Simulated assay, not measured.
Amino acid sequence: MSPSLYNELYFAVHRALRTVIPDLQDRIPITWHTAPYPFILYVPFIFMAYLARRQDTYIVRLLLLPITLCGIVAAAYRYVWTIPDLNVYNWGQCLLAAVTIAKSLEYAFTQVGMLKIGEIRPGLVKGKRSPAIQVNRPSHHTITPWLYDAVELAHTLRGLGWKFGQGVHIPKETRPLERIPFLSATLRSFITNFLLLDLLECIIKLFPGVGSPIGGSIFYPNLSPIPRYLISTLIHIMTGTSILFGFKMVYDLITLIAVSVLNSSPTCWPPVTDHPWTADSMHAFWARNWHQLLRQTFLVLGGYPGKWIAGDLGMLLGTFIASGLFHECAMYSMGRGFDHTVSIFFTLQGPVLVLERVWREVTGRRVGGWVGRLWVYSILFLGAQPMGTLNHT
């Protein structure tokens, strides 16, 4: 009996998928010999960024999109770090893949191209025929303008100076904006965050299983409920705080390189977070206090499609669904299979914000004050704890 058309299509799609995302045992170990290949697979993405800053390239960008997406996914999932201590790099390269996939989709489907504030076409300011001033470009850059343009667009996340970044919350700067004092303050911040992260990491590793490369659960079943959940809460809070220090540390390091080596302006590097511990509503936490580096990623992957399907509510839910899948698909690369506990937590943030909106409409008051802060802490410190259970499948 000959196979049906459905079976033929399923087999073809499965083979194509496994060509780009092989089973874990079929992936290529990253060595000095294979390391260049993932970088080469990102060349079409950089070219896409270049085209997005050039006029009349819409059709070319659309045609380039499939090979760009295949290259990004292959770079993330065909190549694997096999040393257990480096397994987190598999997670990181898949997070990068999701971000660049969202960027590629935006570059391809934005017909006019990616515009800076004040531009009507790439490089053309409204009312002027001369090229637009490059907002973030150093005055003495050492690479050619076309390459700098592509690299700048490929690396910008919050979109400072770009049209897609309008409306994103930018924390108030607390450092002096003169170059040398700014670098000194950033260096002190980097050292402080590095030491605090190192301290917390050392403490977390003292808990059995939690700090090992193999991983484990923050819940110890041999303990009675009260000490079990007290310990899990402590580990959870320290882990979240470590992530916060890690964000700041890495951002400080990149800022130091950009300002001191690449001669970027200090105004291009505002703080990455805005005092997350002070959030008194989940709306404030996600929209202002937490980092906004992935805002556009989640809008492109979930928010904009959701709005097309169900308006503003669909945009809200779609954004958080994309956030959940973003985190879980990256964890898949670490060889643990799929466990949608993380996806569910982030997806539920949409209904949580809806509840806050309903509260405001019913009571006439926003969620806030010390009650609002307890509400935020209960969600982040208690509601998020199931994410600390490891999937061993």
Rank of each mutant, 00 (worst) to 15 (best):
S4T: 15
Y6Q: 11
E8K: 14
L9K: 08
Y10N: 13
A16P: 02
T19F: 15
P22I: 03
L24H: 09
I28K: 07
I28G: 04
Y37G: 02
P38Q: 01
Y42V: 05
Y50D: 00
L62K: 03
L64D: 08
C70L: 12
V73S: 06
A74I: 04
A76V: 05
A76L: 07
I83T: 10
N87W: 02
V88G: 09
Y89A: 15
Y89P: 00
C94T: 14
L96I: 10
A97L: 04
V99G: 00
K103L: 03
S104H: 02
S104K: 03
Q111T: 13
P122L: 05
V125I: 14
V125Q: 10
K126Y: 10
R129D: 11
P131E: 03
A132H: 07
Q134G: 02
T142P: 06
W146M: 13
Y148L: 00
D149L: 00
V151I: 10
H155A: 10
V168K: 12
K172G: 15
T174F: 09
R175V: 13
E178A: 14
I180N: 09
I180A: 14
P181V: 07
S189L: 15
S189D: 09
T192R: 10
T192A: 13
N193G: 07
L197I: 12
L197Q: 13
E201H: 14
I203H: 14
K205V: 05
K205F: 05
G209I: 06
G216E: 02
G216I: 01
S217H: 15
Y220G: 11
L223Y: 07
L223N: 02
L223C: 03
S224W: 11
P225I: 11
I226P: 15
R228C: 09
S232V: 07
T233Q: 12
G240L: 12
I243G: 08
F245Y: 07
F247V: 14
M249R: 00
L253I: 08
L253G: 08
L256N: 01
V259D: 11
V261E: 04
V261H: 07
V261F: 11
S265N: 13
C268M: 14
P271A: 05
M282D: 00
A287W: 05
G302L: 02
P305G: 03
G306W: 00
L316P: 00
L325Q: 05
H327W: 05
E328F: 13
Y332I: 13
S343M: 06
E356S: 03
R357Q: 13
W359S: 03
R360T: 15
E361D: 12
R366S: 14
L374F: 10
V376K: 00
L382F: 11
L382N: 07
M387N: 08
